[in-house]
Amino acid sequence: MHSDGQKAPLALKLAAGAGILFLHLPILLIFVYAFTTEEKSYQWPPPGFTTRWLGVAWDRPDVWSALGLSLKVASIATLIALVLGTLAAAAVSRSRFFGREAVSLLVILPIALPGIVTGIALRSAFNLAEIPFSFWTIVLGHATFCVVVVYNNAVARMRRTSGSLIEASYDLGADGFQTFRYVILPNIGTALLAGGMLAFALSFDEVIVTTFTAGQQQTLPIWMLEELVRPRQRPVTNVVAMVVVLVTLLPILAAYWLTRDGDTVAGSGK
Protein backbone atom coordinates (compact mmCIF):
# COMPACT_ATOMS: atom_id res chain seq x y z
CA MET A 1 0.00 0.00 0.00
CA HIS A 2 1.35 3.43 -0.91
CA SER A 3 1.71 6.04 1.79
CA ASP A 4 0.11 9.44 1.33
CA GLY A 5 3.49 11.17 1.23
CA GLN A 6 5.00 8.99 -1.53
CA LYS A 7 5.74 10.75 -4.81
CA ALA A 8 3.78 9.77 -7.89
CA PRO A 9 5.67 7.95 -10.67
CA LEU A 10 6.84 10.06 -13.62
CA ALA A 11 4.55 8.19 -16.02
CA LEU A 12 1.54 9.00 -13.87
CA LYS A 13 2.52 12.69 -13.78
CA LEU A 14 2.88 12.75 -17.57
CA ALA A 15 -0.48 11.04 -18.02
CA ALA A 16 -2.14 13.56 -15.70
CA GLY A 17 -0.53 16.45 -17.56
CA ALA A 18 -1.66 15.03 -20.91
CA GLY A 19 -5.20 14.68 -19.60
CA ILE A 20 -5.25 18.29 -18.39
CA LEU A 21 -3.95 19.54 -21.76
CA PHE A 22 -6.56 17.46 -23.60
CA LEU A 23 -9.33 19.03 -21.52
CA HIS A 24 -8.18 22.64 -21.43
CA LEU A 25 -6.10 23.33 -24.54
CA PRO A 26 -9.21 23.97 -26.71
CA ILE A 27 -10.42 26.49 -24.10
CA LEU A 28 -7.07 28.27 -24.21
CA LEU A 29 -7.41 28.55 -27.99
CA ILE A 30 -10.62 30.56 -27.45
CA PHE A 31 -8.63 33.12 -25.49
CA VAL A 32 -5.95 33.26 -28.20
CA TYR A 33 -8.40 33.74 -31.08
CA ALA A 34 -10.26 36.44 -29.14
CA PHE A 35 -7.25 38.70 -29.77
CA THR A 36 -6.29 37.69 -33.33
CA THR A 37 -6.10 40.27 -36.10
CA GLU A 38 -7.66 37.86 -38.64
CA GLU A 39 -11.38 38.53 -38.97
CA LYS A 40 -12.89 35.71 -41.02
CA SER A 41 -10.82 32.57 -40.45
CA TYR A 42 -8.77 30.70 -37.89
CA GLN A 43 -5.05 30.54 -38.61
CA TRP A 44 -2.25 29.01 -36.60
CA PRO A 45 -0.13 30.70 -35.61
CA PRO A 46 -2.31 33.83 -35.57
CA PRO A 47 -0.99 36.54 -37.91
CA GLY A 48 -1.05 39.08 -35.10
CA PHE A 49 -2.80 40.18 -31.96
CA THR A 50 -5.07 43.10 -31.16
CA THR A 51 -7.50 44.18 -28.45
CA ARG A 52 -9.89 45.95 -30.82
CA TRP A 53 -12.39 43.06 -30.79
CA LEU A 54 -13.09 43.76 -27.14
CA GLY A 55 -14.38 47.19 -28.13
CA VAL A 56 -16.31 45.79 -31.08
CA ALA A 57 -18.04 43.23 -28.87
CA TRP A 58 -18.80 45.94 -26.28
CA ASP A 59 -20.57 48.04 -28.93
CA ARG A 60 -22.70 45.19 -30.34
CA PRO A 61 -26.31 45.62 -29.05
CA ASP A 62 -27.19 42.04 -30.00
CA VAL A 63 -24.51 40.77 -27.62
CA TRP A 64 -25.91 42.81 -24.73
CA SER A 65 -29.46 41.70 -25.50
CA ALA A 66 -28.49 38.02 -25.53
CA LEU A 67 -26.37 38.43 -22.39
CA GLY A 68 -29.20 40.14 -20.51
CA LEU A 69 -31.66 37.41 -21.46
CA SER A 70 -29.27 34.67 -20.34
CA LEU A 71 -28.64 36.36 -17.00
CA LYS A 72 -32.35 36.83 -16.31
CA VAL A 73 -33.23 33.26 -17.30
CA ALA A 74 -30.41 31.80 -15.22
CA SER A 75 -31.32 33.91 -12.17
CA ILE A 76 -35.01 32.99 -12.14
CA ALA A 77 -34.38 29.33 -12.99
CA THR A 78 -31.91 29.17 -10.10
CA LEU A 79 -34.43 30.68 -7.68
CA ILE A 80 -37.09 28.15 -8.74
CA ALA A 81 -34.56 25.34 -8.40
CA LEU A 82 -33.54 26.47 -4.90
CA VAL A 83 -37.14 26.38 -3.67
CA LEU A 84 -38.23 23.13 -5.33
CA GLY A 85 -34.91 21.34 -4.86
CA THR A 86 -34.78 22.17 -1.15
CA LEU A 87 -38.38 21.08 -0.56
CA ALA A 88 -37.83 17.81 -2.42
CA ALA A 89 -34.60 17.16 -0.51
CA ALA A 90 -36.33 17.80 2.81
CA ALA A 91 -39.15 15.40 1.94
CA VAL A 92 -36.84 12.62 0.82
CA SER A 93 -34.24 12.94 3.58
CA ARG A 94 -36.51 13.61 6.57
CA SER A 95 -39.58 11.51 5.80
CA ARG A 96 -40.26 7.84 5.24
CA PHE A 97 -43.08 7.00 2.84
CA PHE A 98 -43.96 4.45 0.22
CA GLY A 99 -42.11 5.13 -3.04
CA ARG A 100 -39.52 7.47 -1.54
CA GLU A 101 -36.65 6.04 -3.60
CA ALA A 102 -38.79 6.21 -6.74
CA VAL A 103 -39.45 9.89 -6.05
CA SER A 104 -35.73 10.49 -5.61
CA LEU A 105 -35.02 8.75 -8.92
CA LEU A 106 -37.68 10.79 -10.73
CA VAL A 107 -36.23 14.04 -9.38
CA ILE A 108 -32.75 13.14 -10.63
CA LEU A 109 -33.94 11.73 -13.97
CA PRO A 110 -34.00 14.99 -16.00
CA ILE A 111 -30.27 15.49 -15.63
CA ALA A 112 -29.57 11.87 -16.60
CA LEU A 113 -31.56 12.11 -19.84
CA PRO A 114 -29.92 13.50 -22.98
CA GLY A 115 -30.66 17.19 -23.37
CA ILE A 116 -32.31 16.65 -26.73
CA VAL A 117 -34.84 14.26 -25.14
CA THR A 118 -35.67 16.82 -22.47
CA GLY A 119 -35.98 19.53 -25.12
CA ILE A 120 -38.32 17.50 -27.32
CA ALA A 121 -40.44 16.52 -24.32
CA LEU A 122 -40.78 20.13 -23.17
CA ARG A 123 -41.58 21.39 -26.66
CA SER A 124 -44.26 18.73 -27.08
CA ALA A 125 -45.77 19.60 -23.70
CA PHE A 126 -45.85 23.33 -24.49
CA ASN A 127 -47.43 22.68 -27.88
CA LEU A 128 -50.04 20.35 -26.37
CA ALA A 129 -50.93 22.94 -23.73
CA GLU A 130 -50.90 25.70 -26.40
CA ILE A 131 -48.35 27.68 -24.42
CA PRO A 132 -46.53 30.18 -26.67
CA PHE A 133 -42.74 30.07 -26.58
CA SER A 134 -41.46 32.95 -24.53
CA PHE A 135 -39.08 33.96 -21.77
CA TRP A 136 -40.98 31.76 -19.30
CA THR A 137 -40.78 28.61 -21.41
CA ILE A 138 -36.99 28.99 -21.39
CA VAL A 139 -37.04 29.44 -17.61
CA LEU A 140 -39.19 26.33 -17.10
CA GLY A 141 -36.96 24.31 -19.40
CA HIS A 142 -33.81 25.32 -17.51
CA ALA A 143 -35.44 24.77 -14.12
CA THR A 144 -35.95 21.06 -14.94
CA PHE A 145 -32.23 20.31 -14.66
CA CYS A 146 -31.33 23.10 -12.22
CA VAL A 147 -33.65 21.51 -9.63
CA VAL A 148 -31.57 18.33 -9.80
CA VAL A 149 -28.32 20.14 -9.02
CA VAL A 150 -29.80 21.86 -5.96
CA TYR A 151 -31.51 18.64 -4.85
CA ASN A 152 -28.29 16.63 -5.04
CA ASN A 153 -26.43 19.11 -2.83
CA ALA A 154 -29.27 19.66 -0.37
CA VAL A 155 -30.22 16.01 0.14
CA ALA A 156 -26.60 14.98 0.74
CA ARG A 157 -26.12 17.67 3.35
CA MET A 158 -29.47 17.00 5.03
CA ARG A 159 -28.62 13.31 5.39
CA ARG A 160 -25.44 14.32 7.20
CA THR A 161 -27.32 16.64 9.57
CA SER A 162 -28.26 14.95 12.83
CA GLY A 163 -31.99 14.56 13.32
CA SER A 164 -31.51 15.07 17.06
CA LEU A 165 -30.83 18.76 16.42
CA ILE A 166 -34.26 19.18 14.86
CA GLU A 167 -35.94 17.19 17.62
CA ALA A 168 -34.17 19.31 20.25
CA SER A 169 -35.39 22.47 18.53
CA TYR A 170 -39.00 21.29 18.70
CA ASP A 171 -38.55 20.17 22.30
CA LEU A 172 -37.38 23.67 23.20
CA GLY A 173 -40.57 25.18 21.79
CA ALA A 174 -39.49 26.28 18.32
CA ASP A 175 -42.00 26.02 15.51
CA GLY A 176 -41.30 24.74 12.01
CA PHE A 177 -40.17 28.08 10.60
CA GLN A 178 -37.86 28.80 13.53
CA THR A 179 -36.36 25.33 13.29
CA PHE A 180 -35.68 25.80 9.60
CA ARG A 181 -34.20 29.27 10.08
CA TYR A 182 -31.97 28.62 13.09
CA VAL A 183 -31.14 24.90 12.81
CA ILE A 184 -31.60 23.50 9.30
CA LEU A 185 -30.58 26.50 7.18
CA PRO A 186 -27.22 27.09 8.93
CA ASN A 187 -26.37 23.43 8.36
CA ILE A 188 -27.35 23.29 4.68
CA GLY A 189 -26.62 26.92 3.73
CA THR A 190 -23.29 26.29 2.00
CA ALA A 191 -24.74 23.30 0.13
CA LEU A 192 -27.63 25.43 -1.14
CA LEU A 193 -25.26 28.21 -2.16
CA ALA A 194 -23.04 25.76 -4.00
CA GLY A 195 -26.04 24.14 -5.70
CA GLY A 196 -27.40 27.53 -6.70
CA MET A 197 -24.07 28.57 -8.20
CA LEU A 198 -23.80 25.37 -10.20
CA ALA A 199 -27.41 25.69 -11.34
CA PHE A 200 -26.78 29.26 -12.49
CA ALA A 201 -23.68 28.20 -14.43
CA LEU A 202 -25.53 25.32 -16.12
CA SER A 203 -28.48 27.52 -17.05
CA PHE A 204 -26.28 30.32 -18.35
CA ASP A 205 -24.58 28.17 -20.97
CA GLU A 206 -27.42 25.76 -21.84
CA VAL A 207 -27.92 25.30 -25.60
CA ILE A 208 -29.93 22.18 -26.40
CA VAL A 209 -32.96 22.66 -24.15
CA THR A 210 -32.99 26.37 -25.02
CA THR A 211 -33.14 25.57 -28.72
CA PHE A 212 -36.42 23.71 -28.23
CA THR A 213 -38.04 26.19 -25.82
CA ALA A 214 -36.86 29.66 -26.87
CA GLY A 215 -38.89 30.31 -29.98
CA GLN A 216 -37.45 33.43 -31.64
CA GLN A 217 -35.51 34.61 -28.59
CA GLN A 218 -31.74 34.39 -28.37
CA THR A 219 -29.85 33.59 -25.22
CA LEU A 220 -26.10 34.13 -25.34
CA PRO A 221 -25.21 30.50 -26.21
CA ILE A 222 -27.80 30.50 -29.02
CA TRP A 223 -26.38 33.79 -30.31
CA MET A 224 -22.89 32.29 -30.31
CA LEU A 225 -24.08 29.19 -32.17
CA GLU A 226 -25.72 31.26 -34.90
CA GLU A 227 -22.64 33.48 -35.18
CA LEU A 228 -20.49 30.41 -35.79
CA VAL A 229 -22.88 29.12 -38.47
CA ARG A 230 -23.15 32.50 -40.22
CA PRO A 231 -20.06 34.38 -39.07
CA ARG A 232 -19.63 38.12 -39.48
CA GLN A 233 -16.75 38.77 -37.11
CA ARG A 234 -15.34 35.51 -35.76
CA PRO A 235 -13.13 37.12 -33.10
CA VAL A 236 -16.20 38.75 -31.53
CA THR A 237 -17.66 35.28 -30.99
CA ASN A 238 -14.45 34.23 -29.27
CA VAL A 239 -14.51 37.33 -27.08
CA VAL A 240 -18.04 36.46 -25.98
CA ALA A 241 -17.03 32.82 -25.46
CA MET A 242 -14.16 34.01 -23.28
CA VAL A 243 -16.62 35.99 -21.16
CA VAL A 244 -18.89 32.93 -20.86
CA VAL A 245 -15.95 30.82 -19.67
CA LEU A 246 -15.12 33.37 -16.98
CA VAL A 247 -18.75 33.85 -15.93
CA THR A 248 -19.37 30.11 -15.55
CA LEU A 249 -15.94 29.35 -14.05
CA LEU A 250 -16.32 31.66 -11.06
CA PRO A 251 -19.49 30.09 -9.58
CA ILE A 252 -18.14 26.59 -10.20
CA LEU A 253 -14.92 27.41 -8.35
CA ALA A 254 -16.92 29.00 -5.55
CA ALA A 255 -19.17 25.93 -5.31
CA TYR A 256 -16.12 23.67 -5.17
CA TRP A 257 -14.58 25.78 -2.42
CA LEU A 258 -17.78 25.74 -0.37
CA THR A 259 -18.18 21.95 -0.57
CA ARG A 260 -14.51 20.93 -0.45
CA ASP A 261 -14.83 19.65 3.11
CA GLY A 262 -17.56 17.11 2.37
CA ASP A 263 -16.83 14.18 0.12
CA THR A 264 -20.48 13.12 0.13
CA VAL A 265 -21.88 16.44 -0.98
CA ALA A 266 -23.06 16.04 -4.52
CA GLY A 267 -22.10 18.70 -7.02
CA SER A 268 -22.91 16.92 -10.24
CA GLY A 269 -22.76 18.84 -13.52
CA LYS A 270 -24.92 18.30 -16.56
Rank of each mutant, 00 (worst) to 15 (best):
L185D: 08
G115F: 01
M197V: 03
A121L: 12
L140A: 15
L185K: 11
T137I: 02
T144C: 13
F145S: 01
F98Q: 09
F200D: 00
V148F: 00
T211Q: 09
W136G: 02
I76E: 04
N187F: 06
G196H: 06
T210G: 12
R96W: 02
L82M: 13
G99Y: 14
I116Q: 02
V207L: 15
R159N: 12
A90W: 09
A81R: 11
T78Q: 06
V147D: 04
V83A: 15
L192F: 07
L82K: 07
A90G: 02
T211S: 07
L122K: 05
R181Y: 14
G176I: 10
L140V: 15
G85I: 00
L105T: 15
I120T: 05
A174K: 12
A129C: 07
S95Y: 14
L172E: 12
V83P: 13
A201F: 08
P186K: 14
S203F: 04
A168K: 15
S169D: 09
N153D: 00
V117I: 14
T78D: 03
G196N: 08
S75T: 13
M158K: 03
I108E: 01
L185C: 09
I80M: 12
L198S: 05
L165G: 01
T190S: 08
A89N: 05
L82R: 07
T211W: 12
E101Y: 08
R159V: 02
N187D: 10
V92D: 06
A129F: 11
V73S: 02
D205S: 14
F145M: 06
F97W: 10
L84V: 15
T137Y: 01
L193W: 04
I138C: 06
F135K: 08
A121W: 09
G85S: 00
F177V: 12
I166Q: 13
A112S: 00
R157N: 01
G189A: 14
V83K: 13
R100N: 06
I116P: 00
F133C: 07
Q178S: 10
F200W: 07
T190H: 06
T211V: 06
D171V: 15
I120M: 10
A194S: 10
